[in-house]
Design a protein around this nucleic acid. Structure first.
Length: 847
DNA sequence: CAGTGAGCGAGCTTCCGCTTGACTT
């Protein structure tokens, strides 16, 4: 039994550290926090100095019990949780929960996992810093008070089960306000002039030189006038400057920058990045992935130097230490870096390899020399106007870190970015040189609205505002989506026409072109409920929704940590006015439905409005008398309460349209989840893309109904009398086989009309474990779940005679069992296959 | 898949930050 028990937060860390310390040390993990405020209640005795009521989290009881018994036996207990506010609190909660004694408990800290750092920490123990713990308690209590007092107000005033909190509510606000900025943006256009010159060298080879006018022309005629003026102009290089420049590498990864780069370069979601990083961490390939520090250990710096010198040469190595930019960084860990810097790639899954390589490149690049550049600026004057065309070029003299890695940027201005071409090499030029003009183009360019947030750019913004922590960025993003406040999606672009003026051979021509713009991919959009909740909170609780609220309370937490402020005092000062506001709002504020009066019905003058209903956003026609029932219609996808117009609302009421009679039954047109459809006698027929649901007439609808009848008739190739559950059908992709609600492919070389029942059964058996595809993807749990529920014995008992009759009876008793299961068991070869499939599923689970 | 929709109302929902699991016969 070891004399010393060391407790850290993460099991992977425990394993590493145990290797550094001798046999006298046993290292265990607390798996994060072990206690929290009680659930289902505020867990705070507000009348009694806000005294918190803690309980061991249910999933931590096992850990706590183990640590309790180990700590009793140990001579010394070393609390080695992270060196930040939360870490200090974890140590204190451990001290309390495990009933530790001051006499043999020591608190140690280190922020890099190296042998030296840990031995140093052991030699300099201290005790728990209660001021820091109090700062954490204040943080925890404040968050609980805010969350558990605001949320119930939303249940009463908007909708049950909603939530609000210091972090999530501000995150949603950012997205709501950005959306309004985008919608309020008035796009303006201006003409951008670019001249193309032909430069010939001594050998007669010609190159194209592109030069741009810095001035833009909002008015087309002005641009045209200038082009006409320049039609017969001479062009001369009036000035040429060459300036050295340099680029420096970005700092090593923190959680937030890793999430951003993985999103931009690899297309990972924030959550996906963290899952992969966790795997890399647990397998010892990278350092800890939840960090706000850009710091690298001395060991890492040394290793980087060696690795870079070896791979690229000494001149590429340049050791540097970065400083954090975020104000409230706690820097309990190192930056995210490879565990071994000489390892540029790893084995493993694709995602793991790509993320690892990204981390490796970023870390290595951060320790490499600046890139040395040469920038050239060429001024080109003409004899017809004062306007200067400017050409720029950039040459890399020494690539330095660029050899490995270049940080990418968010597309803040997509329109402009597509225009921006990389400055490259310029042909040899001299001052005074005359240039031959090829063309000048004047292209109409539009200003773009601010960019909508991606998951990653939202994380970046939150970090800038000091809101949230590395461990919460990913969960926050998933929370706001889970609550239905925000939706991540793609939006198709729109087309617009732009004009290009071209001056060529002394003549100006005009041409209209079309371009796609405003297409969005994986962007964060606010939902109607998110918008209504945000407006409600901003109106009633402006302080909490203020972007500086967290920064303000953080300052006070710092004061508490310094010992200059008592935590209960701080909480009391906050809670008094806050709670009063909560009570006032509960009493006085109206239900928030986001209602907008859109206008009156043009025919009957009834009020038309849009609001949030029990099942989401709707438009409503309110009757003039109390008795008259209002009419409702759901908003269609893409429509928003905030932007829907009276015309659009009226259109929604046009559905369902009764367009006439066919075979003595009504034909109605409506729009469902999968688009417009016609309904006749209980049968649904989708409209074709070209059909407009608002204008389609009865003749066309009958055509569609008859068309569907025909394909339905032709759908059935054959049903076997002895096995009505086995059918040959015609589908969208040709003939296929259905058995027991599962679909099977048919062999291409056979005529489906000639297949016998036995042929079909053989196909099912041959398809084996992965052959049958369920008819509908949303019936997902039916097949595998039911299969497991079936007692194996039952199937075995019934299988004996391999006759079709027996099979049918089995099918009846356990109708949901995939046919393949039965099949594999009835055939002689079955056991092999069944065994193989079992191990396959087993393997999946251990993963 | 293809509608519903305030009204009387039980009992439920909810926060942020620290860390990984995962028991089917």
């Amino acid at each position: 039994m070891a004399d010393n028990l060391v407790i850290v937060e993460s099991p992977a860390k425990a394993k590493t550290i145990e290797g550094f310390l001798g046999k006298d040390f046993q290292v265990k993990s607390s798996y994060g926090h072990v206690r929290d405020l009680v659930k289902n209640d505020k867990g705070i005795d507000i009348g009694n100095g806000f005294s918190p009521l803690y309980e061991v989290s249910p999933d931590k009881e096992k850990v706590v019990n183990e640590l309790k018994s180990l700590s009793k036996k140990a001579k010394t207990v070393w609390l080695a949780t992270d060196e930040d506010r939360e870490g200090e609190a974890i140590s204190w909660h451990l001290f309390e929960t495990l009933n530790l004694k001051e006499s043999n408990t020591k608190r140690i800290v280190f922020h890099e996992i190296t042998k030296k750092a840990i031995q140093e920490a052991i030699s300099k123990p201290r005790f728990i810093d209660m001021h820091l713990v109090d700062a954490q308690q204040a943080r925890r209590i404040l968050d609980r008070l805010v969350g558990f007092e605001l949320s119930p107000i939303l249940w009463k005033k908007i909708k049950p089960s909603l939530s609000a909190g210091r972090v999530q509510s501000v995150s949603v606000r950012l997205i709501v306000e950005r959306e309004r900025d985008v919608e309020g943006h008035k796009s303006q256009s201006a003409y951008k002039l670019v001249a193309h010159f032909i430069v010939k060298d001594k050998k007669g080879n010609s190159t194209l030189l592109k030069a741009e006018l810095s001035q833009r022309f909002p008015v087309k005629e002005d641009a045209e006038a200038l082009l006409n003026k320049l039609a017969n102009a001479n062009f001369k290089i009036s000035n040429l400057e060459v300036k050295p420049g340099k680029k420096s590498p970005a700092a090593p990864f923190t959680t937030s920058t890793l999430q951003q780069e993985a999103s931009r370069k690899l297309g990972f979601s924030v959550a996906q990045t963290m899952v992969v990083a966790q795997r890399l961490y647990e397998s010892g390939k990278i350092t800890y992935m939840r960090t706000d520090s850009v710091n690298l250990s001395q060991l890492a710096l040394d290793e980087a130097k060696v690795a870079i010198s070896k791979m690229y040469g000494k001149e590429y190595s340049f050791t540097r230490q970065f400083k954090t930019k975020s104000a409230n960084a706690q820097e309990a860990h190192e930056a995210i870096r490879p565990a071994y810097l000489d390892l540029s790639t790893i084995d493993g899954e694709n995602a793991d390899r790509r993320l690892y390589e990204l981390i490796w490149k970023r870390t290595i690049a951060s320790q490499m020399a600046d890139a040395q550049l040469e920038r050239t600026v060429v001024n080109i004057e003409n004899n017809k106007s004062k306007e200067l065309f400017i050409a720029t070029g950039e040459v890399i003299r020494f690539d330095g870190f660029l050899r490995v890695y270049l940080e990418s940027t968010d597309d803040e201005n997509e329109e402009n970015d597509t225009e921006k071409e990389k400055d490259g090499l310029l042909p040899p030029l001299t001052i005074g040189q005359m240039l031959d003009l090829d063309t000048i183009t004047g292209t109409q360019r539009f200003s773009s609205p601010p960019a909508r947030y991606t998951e990653a750019s939202l994380v970046k913004k939150l970090e800038e505002l000091g809101i949230g922590r590395p461990s919460t960025y990913a969960p926050t993003i998933s929370t706001v989506q889970k609550r239905g406040y925000v939706i991540k999606e793609d939006r198709p672009g729109k087309e617009r026409i732009f004009t290009v003026l071209t001056l060529r051979n002394g003549k100006v021509s005009t041409e209209d072109r079309t371009e796609n713009y405003a297409a969005e991919k994986s962007k964060m959009f606010p939902t109607d409920i998110g918008t209504v909740v945000t407006d409600f909170l901003v109106l009633n609780f402006p302080e909490i929704l203020d972007y500086n609220f967290t920064a303000n309370v953080e300052r006070e937490f710092d004061e508490i940590a310094q010992g200059n402020l008592q935590w209960a005092k701080m909480i009391k000062k906050f809670y008094g006015p806050f709670h009063k506001l909560v009570e006032d709002t509960e009493k006085n504020s109206e239900r928030a439905t986001g209602e907008r009066i859109l206008g009156v019905h043009p025919e009957n003058g009834k009020k038309i409005s849009a609001r949030i209903g029990r099942f989401g956003p709707l438009v409503q026609i309110t009757g003039e008398t109390e008795d008259e029932k209002p009419q409702f219609a759901k908003l269609r996808p893409g429509q928003r309460l905030e932007t829907i117009t009276l015309e659009e609302a009226l259109d929604l009421f046009k559905m369902p349209r009764n367009i006439g009679n066919y075979e003595e039954e009504d034909v109605t047109i409506s729009i469902g989840r999968f688009g417009p459809y016609a309904r006749h006698n209980g049968i649904f027929v989708s409209l074709a893309k070209a059909d407009d649901p608002y204008t389609i007439e009865i003749d066309r609808a009958i055509e569609l109904i008859e068309g569907k009848r025909k394909t339905d008739r032709e759908r059935i190739i054959r049903i076997f009398e002895e096995r009505p559950d086995v059918k040959l059908l015609n589908g969208r992709w040709g003939p296929y086989l259905v058995a027991n609600e599962l679909n099977y492919k048919l062999p291409k070389d056979k005529d489906p009309n000639a297949l016998t029942l036995q042929d079909c059964l053989d196909i099912i058996i041959a398809a084996g474990e992965n052959g049958g595809k369920p008819k509908r993807s949303f019936g997902r749990k039916a097949a595998p779940f039911a299969a497991k529920k079936v007692p194996a014995k039952k199937t075995v008992a019934k299988k004996t005679p391999a006759t079709t009759g027996a099979k049918t009876s089995v099918a009846k008793t356990i109708s949901k069992v995939p046919a393949k299961k039965k099949a594999t068991k009835t055939v002689a070869k079955a056991p092999v296959k069944a065994a193989a499939s079992k191990t396959a599923t087993a393997r999946k689970k251990t993963k």
